[in-house]
Nucleic acid binder design. Structure first.
Length: 218
DNA sequence: CGTGCGATTATCT
DNA sequence: GATAATCGCACGC
């Protein structure tokens, strides 16, 4: 149960479209520490702090789905910033991205992990764990597949506007200091494996493994 | 601590 | 027909 009436204002204003209209490698670290809200005000509301992201640089990035130009799948990344790009992979997982850069220039930030702030019960209901297994709060939204599953994001959310008035998904600025950021190479890709485009909240227990470089152990 | 593997299907060549 | 921005479990050091 939410402890007390912590309304949306405590998380700061929603990020504007201008925030996303920058190169993905700048937006990605800037999204770490922001608050993600899904289904605000509804019975399934979930709020979570973004703790890990990766930047995909469009046509100049061999690892980006947009590398070879627009296709039916990648077209959304060439559109206006501040929208969701959700894709299905490995026959069973969805991954959620935020579209960046200006209209006509492809770019995206993959949301890799988040820490549940409220709505953990809703998330547990979506994660299918083996019977008698309890998933720790830290692990509920750890990994891009688990994050999308736990937040209920799938292909129906592809193209959703993050900056609209009544959108299902909103990212707000948060309050207080920016968290310390650790940087490392991206995970699970076959090409451009060495580019340091993975960004994480340094030392945060909800970050997926392996932890990016320079993070103090424990 | 690390590496390896199978599950399962939308998307691309 | 091949691939894949994953996950969780198995196994070895």
């Amino acid at each position: 149960m939410p402890p007390s009436g912590n309304r949306g204002e405590a998380s700061g204003p929603a990020l504007s479209r201008d925030f996303f209209a920058r190169p993905a490698e700048l937006v990605a670290p800037d999204l770490v520490g922001r608050l993600l809200t899904v289904d605000a005000g509804g019975a399934d509301e979930v709020r979570a702090w973004i703790v890990e992201t990766e930047a995909y640089l469009g046509m100049r990035d061999p690892a980006s789905h947009a590398h070879r130009g627009p296709t039916p799948r990648s077209a959304i990344m060439f559109g206006p910033p501040g929208h969701l790009y959700v894709y299905f992979t490995y026959g069973m997982h969805h991954c959620a991205n935020v579209v960046t850069d200006g209209t006509g220039t492809a770019g995206a930030v993959l949301l890799r992990a988040a820490m549940v702030e409220s709505g953990a019960k809703v998330v547990r209901g979506r994660r299918r764990a083996p019977a008698a297994t309890v998933i720790a709060d830290n692990a509920l939204l750890r990994g891009p597949g688990n994050l999308s599953r736990g937040l209920g994001l799938d292909l129906r959310d592809n193209g959703a506007d993050l900056c609209g008035v009544a959108g299902r998904v909103v990212i707000s600025s948060g309050r207080g200091r920016r968290p310390p950021i650790a940087v490392g190479p991206r995970i699970g890709i076959r090409r451009a494996v060495d580019s340091p485009l993975r960004f994480a909240w340094a030392g945060h227990p909800a970050v997926s493994r392996p932890r990016p470089g320079g993070v103090p152990r424990c």
